[in-house]
Simulated scan of single mutants.
Amino acid sequence: MALVHPAYGQLRQVTENAAVLLAENPSVMSLEGTNTWILRAPDSDECIVIDPGPLDEAHLARVAQVPVAMTLISHRHFDHTEGGERFAELTGSPVHAVTPEHRHGGGTELSGGDVVEAGGLRVRVLATPGHTADSLSFVLEDDRSVLTADTILGRGTTVLDDTDGDLGDYLGSLRSYIELGPGYTVLPGHGAELPDLETIARGYLAHREQRLDQVRSALRTLGDEASARQVVEHVYADVDESLWGAAEKSVNVQLAYLRG
């Protein structure tokens, strides 16, 4: 029987060219854990890895069982990057990233518009900032799938990092997914895969617009200078308080967007 999410410690084939190893680092922010994606054509002896995940020796060793041509980093958050340096040592392969501190083993700068060819595949790099300033997605045309990292998750909604996240950028990134057209499978950084990226992205856009309306309404009630925490307590009153810290990050970004 085919494996289904979540499956810890087991390589799970999702599309013809993409398999996933789920790291055992569950949390409120990472859902069941971080997805490390392994991309290769069926007849290839090597692969491309997307996000080595946490510094977990057992997880990294499992990922390294297939010869690695290169590793690509989706964004700077530690649950995606912490194992990068060790993974480069294990595999002798480069780790490419936007930011210098996440490049290892001779890795170079990665940016939107790049095209990577290895493992018998052609992967197009798509800049999708908003969750973080350096967020990237990876378009795999061979089986019409997009690795969305944390820009779109397998369930729930994305928290925007209030240190360098930007709502305007995020909305633009969702629209760039829609522009790809229908029929792309979502391969997220956390959670299970989803069908039809275009439909999911439209739903995410509608959700963001709804939240913005709620924040605008809260400001009318609380006053224009209300804090993010006050807005969270007003808008997220029906949400478990354990999630308010994450919600506050997104509200900070929403307030920055509304206040220009």
Rank of each mutant, 00 (worst) to 15 (best):
L258Q: 12
D142C: 06
D166W: 11
L121Y: 03
V251P: 07
E16H: 02
D134R: 11
A118H: 08
G92P: 11
E193R: 03
L72M: 14
A7V: 13
Y170S: 01
P100H: 04
E248V: 05
E57G: 05
R62T: 14
Y8V: 12
N35K: 08
S44F: 02
V125W: 08
V49L: 03
I48V: 15
G112K: 02
L171V: 05
M29D: 10
L187W: 00
S44W: 01
G156A: 02
L167I: 05
A41F: 05
G9I: 11
A2G: 11
D164F: 08
E193Y: 01
H190L: 02
A58N: 11
R62C: 07
V159E: 03
Y170I: 04
I73T: 12
Q214H: 07
Q13T: 09
I200M: 06
D51F: 02
V115N: 06
L22Q: 12
S135K: 11
P26N: 12
G92A: 12
C47R: 08
A192R: 04
G168T: 08
L3H: 09
L60F: 04
A69D: 12
K249S: 15
M29V: 14
D134T: 10
G83I: 10
S27H: 15
G84W: 00
E248C: 09
E248H: 03
V146S: 00
V95I: 13
D114G: 13
A247M: 07
R86S: 06
